[in-house]
Design a protein around this nucleic acid. Structure first.
Lengths: 236, 236
DNA sequence: AAAATAAAGTGTTTTTTGTACACTTTCGAA
DNA sequence: TTCGAAAGTGTACAAAAAACACTTTATTTT
């Protein structure tokens, strides 16, 4: 019985939530409560421990909600980080001492990622999060724990899925123009795409539907609107 | 402190090791020690708890070695299974009561998979494994815990990677013929491939090298031998 | 030694997919 | 009415994928 105390091992989830705005790829970060004497800002991915009787997928949803008030976001697991020293920076330890009941416990974390329409989700911080904000992925500060590594891996996954055309539409509003979609692809893949070829490719996907509706209030020829009718993946 | 006892949570690894023999895709299973009164054979994937200070990737290697005596196999993580009820069949509970110090603890498992040249690895059971054997993936019994689900997911992953040509050679002996390689692909993908097109595709991969050597002891025209010179993926 | 067996080995044509490329249209604002 | 700004559109060329059938060669059998 004491033996289990020695071998304290916790499991957490961390959420990498991508958004897209003003032609920039964003990721949702929280700023942790300030507990450090030297007043460091500590940014981190939203994440926390899995509860004793909770499905890990549910934990990801719950934690994201508790920290940012975002709800109903489909999160997909992409990697589990289990280096025993992943939580060993000085600031990490200081933080854990304040927030955790077992600050010395080793923590294995399961990382999830999601793509959301930023318009639909305005994060507001709660729980131990002091802020919850969208940050440009090209301008990410040093994050708590191994969160920079987690984010890097999530980005890699995102790029791969986007080139496979299996993902991406989730980042746009429900109705979008092909121009917006192309810009999204260009930002994520970090390359220029040919307009005519891009449209040809999208138009033969049967998950993208042309609406009988046009963009309004723009100072140029209004574009036709499209919508995405793809469906969700299966769950464990 | 007691709180942590309530929330007993362990992390395990499970290994799905694929092999190929006699034109069949195989998976390495163990038969657990018999602890049941009704003498059920219990097959399972090789798996066990992660140690307190062990990297999860290392745990996978170690556990596989302890149970099957196979060493030096590159295992890649593919999914983490975290349903709180994943270990709740009657036989599962009975088994855990014998083998585990905290039989009631919830266990989250990180699943790994590997491809090996069966010739090079002859498993021999140890630890709580009574047998360790290669089983045809088309003929898998009911496994312990949620191992059937884990295996299904591993197979899906394998098929995907094989169609991407990122994996497969690891299943063949060091020297192989293009005919053998094609049969391997056909078995995994469960489809017929055109011989000439297949050879054309393989021959323009620069990771497959033609040797100045021919097959021996076959009752037909002996084939040229090839070898694979691809390299390993990066690690966390 | 000739014939039978069994898989190895080999190229060309057709179809499909991807890439490169430039001008006209349409709305809102000035 | 003109201007600005992005929308929208088609064709030719290149590359990749798919379809397709006969000859070769070592071994075994007669």
């Amino acid at each position: 019985m004491n033996e289990h105390l020695q071998s304290q091992l916790d499991v957490s989830v961390d959420c990498v939530v991508f958004g897209f705005h003003n032609n920039r790829l964003k990721v949702l970060l929280i700023e942790q409560e300030n507990v450090s004497k030297n007043n460091n800002r500590r940014y981190a991915l939203p994440g926390d421990l899995v509860l004793p009787d909770e499905h890990i997928d549910h934990a990801a949803e719950r934690v994201l909600y508790e920290l940012t008030n975002l709800k109903g976001i489909y999160l997909e697991q992409f990697h589990t980080f289990g280096n025993p020293n992943r939580v060993r920076k000085e600031d990490d330890i200081e933080w854990l001492n304040v927030i955790r009941k077992n600050p010395d416990a080793r923590v294995i974390t399961i990382a999830y990622y999601a793509l959301v329409k930023m318009e639909d989700y305005t994060p507001s911080p709660s729980s131990y999060a002091e802020k919850a904000e969208w940050k440009d992925v090209l301008d990410i500060p040093e994050l708590a724990f191994d969160h920079n590594k987690i984010l890097r891996k999530a980005l890699k996954k995102l790029r791969k899925e986007v080139s496979d055309h299996t993902v991406g539409f989730e980042l746009l509003p429900e109705k979008f123009t092909l121009g917006q979609l192309q810009q999204l692809y260009e930002v994520i893949l970090d390359m220029q795409l040919d307009k005519r070829n891009f449209r040809k490719a999208i138009k033969k996907m049967d998950t993208v539907l042309a609406l009988e509706e046009k963009q309004k209030g723009v100072l140029h020829k209004p574009a036709q609107l499209f919508t995405y009718i793809g469906e969700r993946k299966e769950v464990d």
